[in-house]
Write a protein that binds this DNA or RNA. Structure first.
Lengths: 152, 152
DNA sequence: ATCATTATAGTGTATATGCACATATTCTCG
DNA sequence: CGAGAATATGTGCATATACACTATAATGAT
């Protein structure tokens, strides 16, 4: 029994737990609001990345998204089967080039206002200043974890 | 073309994207360091929650972990098949009571020093003050997303 | 006592995530 | 040019996540 209070603090101060919990809750929040568009938050991010980078290889997209390459491969499959992205061979025949289809553009346009709605609602309640700071913190945390993980 | 720079900022300032990215990177960081213990970061969290709450129902554990109940059901299955937790019927025969086994205690003890190592390394590099603030921010963000999500 | 309501849990399905491994292509150097 | 290194991708496996639905057990109201 004497150990339990310590164990508590361990659990609730765990960076990993808190990061994952926040990610779960925020994802659900965005997904709910964006549901009418038929685009989930994670898919919105991918579509946005493809739109931003233009036709790009899976590896390049994965690097930009700080996402495992093989994860992206599979996630793109769903978008491709819905016809939102088109995957074709590049000049380098090892590469697969991912591009946004017309339907993908449409979906992105349809989802963007809802994304703004979710984002704005959250920021309004969280406080703009504090939100800005947290986004920067989370970005740095991600970068740091990747960096010192690579060292080891 | 003229829209792209805007789309960029949209993507990189997305709360959901940043939260998920941080969660991914941090999870990988913790998992790498904790690998020798045979306990993954997510499992460590679950074991900790069971240890903390003592024998508890799946629903109660899920609430404490801010995790979907059905997700926990499946995640516990892995721990149960490894013999780290024991799942039995409660007095209320609808309930399943989850308890830490001896092997579970052992695994938790084995993993805890490695967890500290990961945690300490991250905090040292991130800065203690800033880390503390971020943990609080992430906790509040998770709670806020759940709260205003429920409203809607 | 009975039946409607509520509470607890599990399953089917689908997406998200990453590691280890296998495959195909390009490049580099002798 | 040809063999081995480097690069780009995909697959098998396992875990993580959640929604919709179903089944079972307790509770409560009449």
């Amino acid at each position: 029994m004497s150990q339990k209070p310590t164990q508590v603090r361990v659990a609730w101060h765990c960076t990993c737990f808190n990061a994952r919990r926040a990610a779960r809750a925020v994802t659900e929040f965005y997904d709910d609001i964006m549901a009418p568009s038929g685009v989930k938050a994670t898919q919105f991010t991918m579509l946005g990345a493809v739109a931003l980078m233009g036709p790009a290889s899976v590896t390049h997209l994965a690097e930009h998204l700080a996402l495992d390459r093989t994860t992206l491969t599979r996630n793109l499959k769903a978008l491709a089967s819905e016809g939102l992205v088109e995957i074709s061979e590049g000049d380098d025949r090892r590469e697969r080039v991912v591009a946004l289809s017309d339907a993908g553009h449409t979906a992105l346009d349809r989802a963007t206002p809802l994304w703004h709605q979710a984002q704005d609602r959250l920021i309004a309640r969280f406080g703009e200043e504090r939100w800005r700071r947290m986004i920067e913190d989370m970005g740095d945390l991600g970068a740091l974890a990747e960096e010192i993980g690579a060292d080891a």
